[in-house]
């Protein structure tokens, strides 16, 4: 616990260039911690990302949706990073299998039914959609909640004045950047204009400011 609090303070205190070296440290230690068993499924090389970029039709990289923004993005989530609610009606027999959700959310595109461009799932390999995503059928709570969320990550945090901003969120289940950051279903504020470059992590490094797993030590 002591160590955690200390480094948290430390992370808040270091500005500018110092932060860059701290980040470097994080990445080095982070990499070491990640060479453990169980992380082998992670796509360190970004192959999946690259291929997804290749497979994205050109039109999705440039069209515009106009109505999905960060406010509505976070309003569907209990905390930044939580699985979003399903913001539209689903059939009572909602099965969540590939012929339902993924028929729209795998590739996106315009949905005449909803009159909108459809957001694309960042993890199409997971096809049991209802494992995490639920519709809303009742607005009243069972009892009130004292839940408090946290601020979402800040945008545009570059460490040098013109350097590419870092990735401010965990890539777990969000390895496919273009799903949220490009195309007509993308969130307006975080849509990028240069998605055709494909390999996002060539320039943008994950720099999630967390005290990762410091409370206990891994073997």
């Amino acid at each position: 616990m002591m160590e955690k609090k200390g480094s948290e303070k430390w992370a808040k205190a270091v500005p500018g260039l110092l932060a860059l070296s701290f980040l470097g440290l994080l990445l080095v230690t982070g990499r070491e911690a990640r060479s453990v068993e169980g992380l082998d499924n992670f796509d360190h090389q970004g192959k999946k990302l690259y291929e997804a970029g290749e497979a994205t039709p050109e039109i999705y990289l440039s069209a515009d949706s106009g109505d999905r923004n960060l406010a509505s993005f976070y309003e569907l989530r209990q905390y930044p990073g939580s699985p979003p609610r399903i913001p539209h009606k689903v059939d009572l027999s909602f099965s969540g299998n590939e012929t339902d959700c993924l028929s729209c959310h795998a590739k996106g595109g315009y949905s005449p039914e909803f009159g909108k461009f459809v957001p694309v799932t960042p993890h199409p390999e997971n096809s049991l959609c209802y494992q995490c995503h639920v519709p809303l059928t009742e607005e009243k709570p069972f009892v009130a909640s004292d839940w408090q969320s946290i601020e979402p990550p800040r945008l545009g945090r570059s460490f040098l004045s013109s350097s590419p901003p870092t990735v401010p969120h965990s890539l777990q289940l969000r390895e496919n950047c273009i799903a949220c950051h490009t195309g007509p279903g993308a969130v307006a504020e975080i849509r990028v204009a240069h998605a055709s470059r494909g390999n996002c992590r060539q320039c943008h490094v994950p720099a999630v400011q967390t005290d990762e797993l410091r409370e206990f030590q891994r073997k």
Partner: peptide, 12 residues
């Protein structure tokens, strides 16, 4: 939801 006051987004 209300947000934890003074939080900078750094989570342990």
């Amino acid at each position: 939801w209300p947000k934890v006051a003074g939080n900078t987004g750094v989570v342990s």
